[in-house]
């Protein structure tokens, strides 16, 4: 079975559609949404609607900090931009869509795979994985061999050897990586709707349980249109600009 791993869509419909189409060409069987479906972007309703439908058919979806904020109201720790986007997003969603977001689980475990937005040791604390040490802490908090997450907005692969060393790998798009069974792996799928590694193209990954092969992809999409919609919605100018630069 081949799973598409989609993180941090952030209501960017152009990027989302481009990735879904690309994933179909990769003959993906199922989807895993790794949190933050909304926030920042101009199309929360169509994105949530699509995911609700997909989850009803068996897709995995976990809660992100933006999803939680939209469902419950912004938290005090959010930036002004994020907070403004959260308020606007709430106004765009139907009650059923808000309820769907609010009911998303923090984590999902299936077989040897853990799906979580931020980290495994305290999923609701939303702490970022920024170092090998953080990743070691997350891997120590789960018995799953593979952890799939988002939140960081930069694609990355970490592996933990039986000797206890955590190593980082900067993935190359399009190359299948077999995740060998002797080590444990943590995959950050990058962001579909707001990549921050200097490359504007949407980032996602696929995982095929035949041979445990992970493949990262970068999918170019119409960033100008997504940015235009952000501006037209009256959302902060910077949220549009960063899509075109990928920062």
């Amino acid at each position: 079975m081949r799973m598409a791993l989609l993180a941090d869509v952030h209501a960017n419909l152009e990027a989302f559609r481009a990735c879904l189409e690309h994933a179909r060409e990769q003959r993906v069987d199922r989807y895993a949404f790794l949190g933050d479906l909304v926030g920042y972007g101009a199309d929360p309703a169509p994105v949530v609607e699509w995911v609700m439908h997909s989850v009803a058919q068996g897709s995995v979806a976990v809660l992100g900090n933006h999803d939680q904020a939209v469902a419950l109201g912004p938290s005090a720790s959010m930036t002004a931009e994020a907070s403004q986007a959260v308020k606007w997003t709430r106004s765009q969603l139907a009650a059923s869509q808000l309820a769907f977001l609010g009911a998303l689980p923090m984590t999902v475990e299936q077989g040897s795979c853990l799906y979580v937005h931020a980290n495994a040791w305290d999923p609701a604390g939303w702490e970022y994985l920024t170092s090998g040490q953080d990743v070691g802490r997350s891997l120590a908090a789960t018995r799953c061999r593979q952890t799939f997450c988002g939140h960081v907005h930069r694609p990355a692969l970490y592996h933990l050897s039986p000797a206890g060393t955590v190593s980082h790998f900067d993935p190359v798009a399009g190359t299948g990586i077999p995740l060998g069974s002797r080590r444990r792996w943590l995959v950050i799928a990058g962001s579909v709707g707001q990549p921050r590694d200097g490359l504007p193209a949407a980032s996602y990954a696929t995982f095929d349980d035949q041979g445990d092969v992970l493949t990262f992809f970068r999918v170019p999409y119409d960033t100008a249109e997504a940015a235009r919609k952000v501006r037209a919605a009256g959302l902060p100018e910077a949220l549009g600009r960063r899509l075109e630069a990928g920062v």
């Binding site: 692969l157 592996h159 050897s161 060393t165 190593s167 790998f169 190359t175 080590r183």
Partner: peptide, 11 residues
């Protein structure tokens, strides 16, 4: 392999 993690390098 240039495009795969180097399991030997860091260990």
């Amino acid at each position: 392999h240039d495009h795969l993690p180097d399991l030997l390098a860091e260990q």
